[in-house]
């Protein structure tokens, strides 16, 4: 027991650990909310695309000494718009348009990176630097997170309707195009928030795993949101602490913790878990478990 308290208490004495926890928990919570819609609509590739496409923006911000969020947001939103344009104005299918735009953007970023003086910065952009976030970074993250959560608070029912049945949304006088744009905007902002925690390469994990895990555990959207946030925040806390004690990369450890949570849900979720489903099949056919 004492050892456990110490496991948590000792790292908390360090300022850099408190900052790291703040950033990873905030990023984890915001990503978790968005990840529910990403998994339900099937926008995982899009989330991956946006996270890679911000690279040139981040690099340019570094080079010109701008806030990292400024460049990242411009390129994130810009690439989403560009994907839409390519898809609508050519016969290329959505996934191909997405793949082309994000790899092109990422490539531009890689070219620009050769201009960055040190390799440390490069590593931080790609794999996160949650142990070294500045006050300015934290301020940007908190503002973006607050804005995102506020919009979600007011619009989550409309967004869920858009995810479930855009035609009905249209029929009752809402504007599905505008809801889609809103969700894409939130996606861009969220990706930028998560960059600081886990870096460009692993942002997509934060944008998908919590929602996918929660999806295995419930049939109700509100619960899915709560579970997703709980899983993600738990993974952020455990991952950050574990990385301290094991002296390994924090971003990677957070994502490993999320992947573990998903694995547990995949195996043992009450109704969706493969272990119980296997047992139910061997028990007796035809006796499906009633839905809640």
């Amino acid at each position: 027991m004492e050892a456990l308290v110490e496991w948590f208490a000792v790292p908390f004495q360090f300022d850099f650990m408190r900052r790291a926890l703040l950033v990873s928990v905030v990023a984890g919570a915001v990503c978790a909310v968005l990840s529910c819609w990403m998994t339900l609509i099937g926008w995982s590739l899009l989330a991956d695309a946006v996270s890679h496409a911000v690279l040139p923006g981040v690099v340019l911000s570094y080079l010109f000494g701008l806030p990292f969020a400024a460049g990242a947001l411009v390129f994130g939103a810009g690439s989403v718009a560009l994907i839409g344009v390519v898809r609508r104005t050519s016969r290329v299918k959505a996934d191909a348009a997405t793949g082309i735009v994000f790899t092109a953007m990422f490539a531009i970023g890689v070219v620009l990176i050769s201009r960055i003086p040190s390799d440390t910065d490069l590593m931080h952009i790609l794999f996160g630097n949650v142990l070294g976030v500045s006050d300015a970074d934290i301020a940007q993250i908190l503002v973006m997170a607050a804005a995102t959560l506020l919009v979600v608070l007011f619009k989550h029912r409309d967004i869920t309707l858009f995810a479930f049945d855009p035609t009905h949304a249209h029929a009752i006088g809402l504007n599905p195009r505008r809801l889609e744009a809103l969700l894409l905007g939130l996606l861009s902002v969220t990706v930028v928030i998560a960059l600081q925690a886990v870096g460009i390469i692993m942002v997509v994990a934060m944008m998908i795993i919590p929602g996918a895990t929660a999806y295995l555990l419930t049939d109700r959207f509100e619960r899915m949101l709560v579970i997703s946030v709980a899983v993600s925040v738990g993974a952020s806390v455990l991952g950050t602490y574990a990385s301290f004690h094991l002296n390994v990369a924090t971003g990677g450890t957070i994502v490993v913790a999320q992947a573990l949570a998903f694995t547990l849900a995949y195996l043992f979720a009450p109704r969706q878990g493969v272990v119980w489903r296997g047992r139910a099949r061997t028990a007796r056919a035809g006796e499906t478990v009633p839905a809640r």
Binding site: L40, F164, D165, T167, Y215, T218, R220, F221
Partner: peptide, 10 residues
């Protein structure tokens, strides 16, 4: 066919 029947809504 246009409905996602696995969507978590009641």
């Amino acid at each position: 066919e246009q409905v996602d029947w696995a969507f978590p809504v009641r």
